[in-house]
Amino acid sequence: MAIEVNGKVIETDEEGYIVNLSDWNEDVAKKLAADEGIELTDAHWEVINFLREYYEEYQIAPAIRVLTKAIGKKLGPDKGNSKYLYELFPYGPAKQACKIAGLPKPTGCI
């Protein structure tokens, strides 16, 4: 499978996650988000950038529990909770946000 962004074809797996992390950029994120029915706001970017930094550091995409705890530590308790994250990413903050952030599917996500 693949998506096209700015004339470049980007390979994705059967669930829509991009195959090569190096293919990711903000335009790719916007396209992936649009395909999910999400208009990216600063709040979305905050989570996306957090996920990318987390992945860079630990080489793993965090599952939802780890994600909420880590976001709470870094961005404050008002953002480090499932309710807030589900408002941004209704199909699952870890799964959907990782997809848009160009990361692999988090372990433990179905």
Rank of each mutant, 00 (worst) to 15 (best):
D23P: 10
Y91L: 14
I3F: 07
L21F: 10
L88M: 00
N20I: 02
Q96C: 09
G92W: 09
V47L: 05
A101K: 03
T107L: 15
G80W: 08
A70T: 13
T68W: 10
G80N: 06
I48R: 10
K31T: 14
A33K: 01
H44M: 02
I18W: 07
A97C: 02
F50N: 03
G108L: 00
K105H: 09
A2Y: 15
K99R: 05
V19R: 03
D27Y: 10
P93Q: 09
R65Y: 13
D23W: 10
G7C: 08
L67G: 03
I100H: 01
S22I: 14
V5C: 08
A34D: 15
Y84E: 00
I60D: 15
I100M: 09
F89I: 05
G102M: 06
E26M: 09
E4P: 10
I110T: 15
K79E: 03
K83F: 14
A43F: 10
I71C: 04
G80F: 04
D23Y: 07
V19I: 12
M1N: 15
I10C: 03
G72Q: 06
E14K: 14
D35P: 06
G16A: 03
Y84K: 01
K99L: 12
A34Q: 13
A43W: 06
G76K: 01
I110F: 15
Y54A: 02
E39R: 14
G76Y: 00
Y55A: 11
I60M: 15
G102V: 06
N20G: 05
P62Q: 05
F89N: 00
I3C: 03
S22P: 12
I38G: 09
I3A: 13
G102R: 04
I71T: 01
C98A: 03
S82A: 13
Y84D: 11
T41Q: 01
A34H: 11
L51E: 06
G102Q: 06
T41G: 01
L32H: 08
F89R: 03
V5E: 12
P93I: 08
L40P: 05
C109D: 14
L32S: 00
D13E: 08
C98I: 09
H44F: 05
I18Y: 08
L67M: 09
P93D: 11
Y54P: 00
N20Q: 11
N6T: 12
Y54H: 04
K74V: 05
G108A: 07
N20A: 04
P106V: 03
P77Q: 05
I100E: 09
E39K: 15
I71L: 05
I48M: 01
D35C: 00
P106Q: 02
K69L: 10
T41F: 04
T12I: 12
L32G: 01
L103F: 04
K8N: 12
L21S: 08
E14N: 12
K83Q: 15
A34L: 10
I48C: 07
E57W: 13
W45H: 06
V5G: 05
V28A: 12
A43Y: 08
D35Q: 11
I100C: 01
L75T: 00
M1A: 15
E4T: 11
L88F: 00
E4R: 13
N6M: 13
A29V: 07
K105I: 12
L75D: 06
Y58G: 10
E15G: 07
K74H: 04
A94W: 02
I71S: 11
K69C: 11
P77A: 11
G16D: 08
E53T: 14
D35T: 07
P62H: 08
Y58K: 07
A97Y: 00
L103C: 05
L85I: 07
